[in-house]
Amino acid sequence: MAARIFIDGAAGTTGLEIHQRLSGRTDVVLHRLPDELRKDRNARREALNICDIAILCLPDDAAREAVGMIDPASNVRVIDASSAHRVTEGWTYGFPEIYGRAAIRRARFVSNPGCYPTGFLALVAPLVREGLLPADWPYSVHAVSGYSGGGNALIDRFESEGDLAWRGYGYAMGHKHLAEMQTHAGLAHPPLFAPAVIDAMRGMVVEVPLPLRAMPRAATAPELRSALSVHYRESRVVSVVEGETPQELLLRRGAAPWDGMELFILGEMANDQVRLVARLDNLGKGASGAAVQSLNLMLGCDEIRGLQLSA
């Protein structure tokens, strides 16, 4: 029997992209509310309680409200694409390459990782866990994302203001992604996070610079590369790029949707200055693609079903 899926917030960017990835599948039935009922509390409550899996593509407060509408005695399972539950007890963090596929298969409540934390954690979490990088180092994260990561308001702003090329933000510190990064990487301190949005609809580069010589208990660059290669060797979503160091990495304005992620270990091996870099689609592995990957695991089917993995 096909699983009944309700996307609460289906009109937003993440919801639309999840819907696209699920359209045409015979193992799921998508339940959608008419436009005039999308914000009707009673209609949403009913939809949330008759589905098998609810996917929440909502602001944080609305996501918490939606979870509160679900009958605790029901068998409804939840994937929350907001940041409301990413460090909440009782929720499974939806990063199968870090926490294992079995944990997501059996979970009732799954929190979808944030796009920036996805890149950071893919690079750092396995290395800290293996003791190859210190947990108490003050890490920095430099990252740029396509403007779709800022929601409909920022999308409208970039597309209406023709001269807006770059938007740095988070200067007040205390960004909501910090707790997620620190918790799931097992760090003693939150990283210093420097995010920016660029004039491209989608795409993301996340970079963590490592001055290995100055870092106590840090492994060598070849050891870091080897460890990440081993960690992701069976993944069909995340790949570690081997071979000659590229002269540059690019994001293109017209990039197609992509649900994979590439990891690079770059730098001068002789002086131990290394740049760990993740390249992904903020709407793919950074949002909708990750939600569909978790959904697939919860349904017990191939985890990459419906994903777009040709870059």
Rank of each mutant, 00 (worst) to 15 (best):
A2G: 02
A2C: 00
A3D: 01
A3L: 10
A3Q: 08
I7A: 02
I7S: 02
I7Q: 03
G9N: 05
I18Y: 09
L22R: 14
L22Q: 13
T26F: 10
D27V: 08
D27Y: 07
V29T: 13
L33V: 11
P34I: 14
P34N: 14
E36Y: 13
E36F: 13
L37S: 12
R41V: 10
N42S: 15
A43G: 14
R44F: 08
R45P: 04
I53D: 09
C57K: 08
D61T: 11
A63N: 09
A63M: 10
R64S: 15
A66P: 02
P72D: 10
P72G: 05
S74E: 12
R77K: 14
V78K: 00
I79Y: 03
D80K: 04
H85W: 06
R86G: 05
E89A: 12
G90A: 07
G90Y: 04
W91E: 00
G94K: 03
P96V: 02
P96G: 04
E97W: 01
G100T: 04
A102S: 10
R106F: 01
F109Y: 09
N112Y: 01
N112K: 03
C115V: 01
T118H: 00
G119N: 04
A122D: 02
L127I: 03
V128T: 07
R129C: 05
E130Y: 03
G131Q: 07
L132C: 01
L133I: 07
L133Q: 05
P134Q: 09
A135T: 07
W137H: 03
V141F: 01
A143H: 04
V144L: 13
G146S: 07
S148V: 02
S148Q: 08
G150C: 08
F158H: 06
F158A: 07
E159C: 08
G162P: 11
L164K: 07
R167M: 13
G170K: 14
L178S: 15
H184C: 09
A185V: 01
L187F: 09
A188I: 12
H189A: 11
P190C: 12
L192G: 08
L192Y: 13
A194S: 14
A196V: 08
I198E: 08
G203Q: 10
V206D: 05
V206T: 15
L210N: 00
A214G: 12
R217E: 14
R217T: 10
T220V: 05
A221V: 00
R225L: 15
L228K: 04
E234Y: 04
E234R: 10
E234P: 02
V238W: 02
V238A: 01
S239W: 05
S239D: 01
V240C: 09
T245Y: 09
L251P: 01
R253D: 15
G254L: 04
P257L: 12
W258P: 05
D259P: 04
M261L: 15
L263V: 00
L263I: 05
L266W: 08
G267V: 06
E268Y: 06
E268R: 11
M269N: 11
A270L: 13
V274E: 08
V274G: 07
R275Y: 02
R275M: 09
L280S: 12
D281M: 11
N282Y: 06
L283T: 14
L283F: 10
G286E: 06
L297K: 03
G300F: 10
C301L: 02
D302A: 12
E303D: 14
I304W: 00
G306R: 02
L307S: 09
